[in-house]
Write a protein that binds this DNA or RNA. Structure first.
Lengths: 138, 138
DNA sequence: GATTATGTATTATAAGATATAATACAAATA
DNA sequence: TATTTGTATTATATCTTATAATACATAATC
């Protein structure tokens, strides 16, 4: 998994990291069950503080995107389907967010056809994880 | 124009205000050329500091969504079409943002049909401003 | 059992963002 | 002239972000 941080961005480092990992899971760059670098390793690779990586990992864990194993490191989880009360509480947030995105895009000159085309293009690039079969010894 | 601030949100007050105004312009709730409350008035109505409103207005001005008249107050502008270098610099930001939004939505169980339907529903609620004819004495 | 590496927690510090407060100023209206 | 406007400045308090240095329980490994 490749991560690129913009140290000049107003977006916090841990948020950039969290968002890139979510995107990587959605595009199949990270597969379900796949292990991520350890907090310390990734921090060293990126040249940032381990606690910054930990903050991103902790958020991803709370959102159900990651599972933490004490010794085996972090692994991509499918817990996001049930985490945070499931889909419903997230739906409202999605609608408000998407409404703002669409308003801005259209005010800048985009039209419905172009927007749907862009969405279709992005969706075509997804490779959604298939839930892992239940295993003994998780 | 109605504005509702969530004082418990992690989203800054000036950002909430800025986003709601952009959405209001996109939905036609605010028309082109329409005047907004003064910095002091809106601050009083919302029960927040005038400088917080000013920060939102200043950002909207920089983005081309508002024009400032010294005495007549702020007015909705169509400068967003040319502001910030125009459409191109904004396109990349839109793509990254939308990709993340779509990834999250699909990971939480949404499918392509549902997503396009939601977009269509939001787009149907838009009423985009028609550029004002050039007037003397702007 | 000892060692080691893991996620996690704690404490401290520095820098920046956010929000409020109190003024002040130039500009434009009345 | 007097008033209201956006804007700028200064100060302060609080929160967030990021780093740093440890420390600890846990689990794999030697």
């Amino acid at each position: 998994m490749r991560v690129s941080l913009d140290f000049n961005s107003e977006e916090p480092l841990y948020t950039q990291l969290r968002n890139q990992i979510v995107t990587a899971i959605g595009t199949g760059e990270l597969e379900l069950g796949e292990r991520l670098p350890t907090v310390r390793q990734l921090a060293q690779d990126l040249g940032i503080n381990p606690m910054t990586v930990n903050k991103a990992y902790a958020q991803l864990k709370a959102e159900g995107f990651l599972e933490m194993d004490r010794r085996r490191g972090a692994a991509v989880s499918d817990g996001f389907l049930s985490a945070g009360g499931g889909y419903e509480p997230y739906r409202g947030k999605l609608e408000r967010e998407l409404k703002l995105t669409i308003c801005e895009a259209f005010l800048r000159g985009m039209n419905a056809a172009e927007f749907h085309e862009l969405c279709t293009s992005i969706i075509a690039g997804l490779r959604l994880p298939k839930p892992l079969p239940e295993m003994e010894g998780n």
